[in-house]
Computed example of a mutant assay.
Amino acid sequence: MSSLITPADRIYVAGHRGMAGSAICRALERGGYPQLLTATRSELDLLDGPAVEAWFEKHQPTVVVLAAAKVGGIRANSSYPADFLLENLKIQTHVIETAWRSGVRRLLFLGSSCIYPKFADQPIKEEALLTGALEPTNEWYAIAKIAGIKLCQALRQQHGFDAISLMPTNLYGPGDNYHPTNSHVLPALIRRFHEAAKADSPSVTCWGTGSPLREFLHVDDLADACMFALENWSPSQEEQAYLNVGTGVDLCIRELAQLVSNLTGYSGEILWDTTKPDGTPKKQLDISRFSLLGWKSKITLSEGLLSTIKTYQNEINNKILRIG
């Protein structure tokens, strides 16, 4: 079967400096797609609708991957709900609508597993979308992502626009955000245990009870999944055009903390601050539909974590990583 995208396509990756976007660029380059289009925030502000329209008119992309988003962990989402909702709605609307109006042939929108209800049946099937209440600690981001999925679905249904969406599970890998308060759980643990090992701290305190179950996907696996979807996945107008992407394996945060502790060389005590929120008790995606298309993850959590920690430590040592 011939690929649905070709090396002649001008592929715009929005958010190319982020963890997911940079990995997608690497995958596309390795896959033989030389005509990648990117723009830094200073070159193109995705919050500025007319600027997005002018940029598309000038550069004429034929394929778009929307990986740009305002992201953060529990504290960031709770502290800046309006920012997370407004900025993500603007980014998505400007890029998706402009892509459709300017004649882009294929668009891939990256959603998030947080779109699903807090107490959805596990593993979570795509049909669980909009069947229950969201996790309150990230509902603003989730609502924005749901709007993006539904915009793609509406344009597909009404105008035949070839927009597809992938819902990745929790991501990790090179290019992650290691901010002390605004990062997600895995980069937060990596930073915390690295610093504790370096300082020979007697203990490390982690948020919550450690009981929530989470699934983690290396960002290079996600990038490979995105390229696979762009090349191979062509749902009919009647089929849903969003699919889950993950590993199919989860573990509790307590186990994850111990794994990170071991890999960073930390040997002190791990304490748990149960006054802090746990978030969703379990979040594992049902990846059977995407798997049936022929894709599966290749990077195990242990090997992915080890390489991620080594990259983090090298960047810290070379003073090229922004963590504040």
Rank of each mutant, 00 (worst) to 15 (best):
I149Q: 08
G31Q: 09
Y12L: 13
G294T: 10
G73D: 02
A54L: 10
I299H: 02
I5P: 03
S267R: 11
V204S: 00
A99R: 05
T205I: 11
E126N: 06
D121G: 07
F290W: 03
L305P: 04
D45A: 12
G72C: 08
N177L: 14
A257T: 05
S203N: 07
E53I: 07
E127C: 10
L44D: 00
I323G: 01
V13L: 04
L301C: 08
D250N: 12
K283Q: 11
E239T: 09
T40A: 12
A51G: 15
L305C: 11
Q35K: 11
I11F: 02
A154D: 13
F193L: 10
V249M: 08
R10L: 01
K310W: 04
P277Y: 03
G208N: 06
L293T: 09
G15A: 04
K298D: 12
N232K: 10
I74F: 00
P202L: 05
P202H: 09
G248Q: 06
G72H: 05
A120M: 03
Q258C: 07
T38D: 05
H159F: 15
D83Q: 13
R106G: 05
P180W: 14
D224W: 00
C114R: 04
Q158T: 12
L44I: 09
L66I: 10
H94Q: 10
A39E: 01
F290S: 03
H218C: 04
N244K: 01
Y12N: 02
P277C: 06
F109L: 08
L186W: 01
I320S: 14
G148P: 03
K118D: 12
E139T: 13
I5Y: 00
G208Q: 06
G268L: 06
A27D: 06
A99V: 11
V249G: 01
A229P: 07
S2N: 14
L37E: 05
T40H: 14
P187R: 00
S302W: 08
S112Y: 06
G246C: 02
L28C: 10
L47Q: 14
D220I: 14
I190P: 00
S302M: 08
G15D: 01
Q92D: 12
K118C: 13
T209K: 06
P202M: 07
N170I: 11
L230G: 07
A67F: 03
I149C: 09
R289P: 05
G132T: 08
I270Q: 06
L89I: 11
G15Q: 01
T308P: 01
S102P: 00
L110G: 05
Q284S: 09
S291V: 07
Y33G: 03
G49D: 15
C226A: 14
R106M: 11
A144S: 15
N77Q: 13
F56L: 09
K310A: 14
S297E: 10
